[in-house]
Amino acid sequence: MLDQPTNERRLTIARAMAEAMQQEMQRDPRVFVMGEDIAGFGGIFGNTRGLFEKFGKERVRDTPISETGFISAAVGAAMDGMRPVVELMFVDFFGVCFDAIYNQMAKNAYFSGGNASVPMVLMTSTGGGYSDAGQHSQCLYGTFAHLPGMKVVSPSNAYDAKGLMTAAIRDDNPVVYMYHKQLQGMGWLGTEPGATLNTPQEGYTVEIGKAKVVRAGSDVTLVGLAMGVHNALKAADKLAEEGVNAEVIDLVSLVPLDRETVINSVAKTGRLIVIDEDYHSYGVSGEIIATVTEHDVSKLKASPARVTFPDVPIPYAKHMEQFCLPNPDKIIAAYRKM
């Protein structure tokens, strides 16, 4: 892994996101970016680095700490023909601005009978694992995916990060782009090396609504997104040592959800484990399991399992947080119980 061919461009997710925004801004004058500390600072998580220097403050705007104001402003701008990309610095802050998101951004197309569109991207950071406690570590995938009218994606690697951002900006619908902090490639909060991948220079899209089988296997299906994919891949490596072949699915997109890829995989393996760093109840893990059981329960050789964050606020103390977070060992333990 260390000896990469020199012609490869290994990018972090942060750089891949910034590159996609930069290319789309060059292509399309309607695209502009706004959020807190996204101009000169380049984004707290590095994902807008270089944009301000290239496009200036008209198109790369630092906002006041007024999320309701600037996110609903993005809705208005999008409906008036612009293509805003706005950042909600941590997804945890959705509490101060959710009306703009789920009542306006997500519903105006429907309320217009499809005559109006809201082509905007709301990018927001998710995830914990570095002891940032209960208001800065949540995932809230299920919260966003639950509410109709917005697409929801979350990349697990830089290749998908770039292609999804490009697709999100070009999409005529609102897209919530959730990036996991510990996959960003920012050393200062620890990073998952597997997220940094060879990423083509030229623009390309990754389809929103299509899951990926990132490892083929026949004995059990491990389904996850973002950090969950990396935990699943590590668990699959360990299981392979025992002769168990796990198939790993990266959901990539929660809305639309590629149910078919999951159903087809479980039809083959007969076993399903969902890995989700979001809270246990009423979330993505329940939705995936319901998808499979509703379709054809006879395909299952064992009860499905989920490895998730328990239904408690995220604790600060490192040992407590690590105790709660999904990890490869918990996935293996879930498999053993099947």
Partner: peptide, 10 residues
Amino acid sequence: FNMANGPIPG
């Protein structure tokens, strides 16, 4: 510097 490390992380 990795925020996640040390006796006071975060």
